[in-house]
Design a binder for these strands. Structure first.
Lengths: 264, 264
DNA sequence: AAGGTGTAAT
DNA sequence: ATTACACCTT
């Protein structure tokens, strides 16, 4: 059987909030080392990768590797029934076709059991090569969210450029143009307000703002976000989940000059 | 060229919030003494007048008088991309057809440039005679906003009457009648809670609440609002902008007994 | 306190 | 269909 007990249940709630609009159905791959999830978004443009390591759970047990096929919209509905301070336990039998969510209120006065039907989903295990990126920027996640939202009100795509001075975001549309530059700054009071740039080579890539915007639904998971860029490679937008792992989003760059490129 | 740097950028954001629903396109008239704007609302019933004096800017330069034709909806969109604590700089070339908004975050780590296309707009320079009003009332802007909103839920027009005792607002509709009286009070702790009446002659005029309601979008600009009334003249609803000037709204009174008077 | 969402009105 | 208001959530 599989069982994972998560003291900070709100983490799981946030993860589902962050991905339920991007991916409809996917497998939660449970093994003795934790829970992993990889899925393309419904239009097959972006990729989501989640890791929740066993060590982040209060209690974790997984006798046999399981691929739990889950409709994220439905799972999210159920997790909405958990209080933000609730302890959440996930359970599944080895041969069962359901998953159980157990919610314990902080004072243990209320115990809820929610059972959800599992689905059979072909797992597409996508090998994501571990690349050395040309530029890695870590910045406050709220700032990234704000920038992406602001640019979305002006244009559809953004050019993200990194130099050793900092990171820039540009867009253009019918009403005008916008360019936002964030300088590297390591001299701030709080570590989470830092913007740091680790760079091997300057890089400049174009992305659809619509997807970047979706990714920022994960802002609540971490005060910082890490953007990794390399020429002609998908950007990686990573939110670290304290003690547990990460939630990563991958998005392929738009090919410049390619005016016949449109999302579905 | 024209360039104005405004340390308290939120002022400009608030000004646009206040007028963008009333006026669609208008000229910002820039001269060496500051920025002025005058425009009729789209249904040609109300008039907006804005003054931002050069002295209120951190830095102000205007080599040549410019009439910058601007779509307020678009400008507002761009200003929404400025943080509330950002420093905002406006720039325009003498012969250019764009205006640039530059936003500097408080710690200078984020610098944004937004460029917007200008439009050609016939400037309607409306001479507003400097009248001696029969009654001038200054009151808390939030209180005025609340009164106008409350009356709007009962009726379409309000009778505003001023005597030396105070100011009264009345309306009536299908569901009933309402009458709100605010007495002059100068004995309050905070100056901004005062209501003062300066009167030469009692006056009573009728106005469309819909427009008064629009005007109160400017409430955030000033803790106090000044209402100036004279028989058969438009009411002036003025919000002073600290160190910079004012935002004024003019609205002609409804002629009593004239039931064939309707806004477009 | 502010942003987002949902609803209601034009 | 669009826009403004209110409510609710973060």
């Amino acid at each position: 059987m599989f069982e994972g007990r998560l003291l900070q249940g709100s983490l799981l709630k946030k993860v589902l909030e962050a991905i339920k609009d991007l991916v409809t159905d996917t497998n939660f791959d449970c093994s003795e080392t934790g829970i992993a999830l990889q899925a393309m978004d419904s239009s097959h443009v972006a990729l989501v990768s989640l890791l929740l390591k066993d060590t982040g759970f209060d209690h974790f047990r997984c006798d046999r590797n399981l691929a739990l096929g889950i409709n994220l919209q439905n799972m999210s509905k159920m997790l909405k029934c958990a209080g933000n301070d609730d302890i959440i336990t996930l359970k599944a039998e080895d041969e069962g076709d359901t998953i159980t969510f157990m919610f314990e209120s902080p004072n243990q006065d209320k115990i809820s059991d929610f059972e959800m039907k599992l689905m059979d989903i072909d797992s597409e295990h996508l090998g994501i090569p571990d690349t050395d990126y040309q530029a890695i920027v870590t910045m406050p996640s709220a700032e990234f969210q704000r920038i992406v939202r602001d640019l979305s009100s002006i244009g559809d795509t953004a050019v993200i450029g990194v130099t050793k001075e900092g990171i820039s975001f540009s867009t253009g549309g019918d009403i005008g143009k916008a360019n936002i530059v964030c300088r590297q700054n390591t001299n701030v009071d709080k570590e989470e307000d830092q913007t740091t740039v680790e760079i091997h080579e300057p890089v400049s890539l174009t992305f659809a703002l619509r997807y970047l915007n979706s990714f920022t639904k994960a802002t609540a998971l971490s005060p910082q976000v890490t953007l990794s860029l390399s020429k002609e490679l998908p950007i990686v937008v990573e939110y670290k989940i304290e003690k547990m792992g990460f939630l990563r989003f991958y998005l392929a760059p738009k090919i410049e000059e390619g005016d016949d490129e449109e999302e579905a």
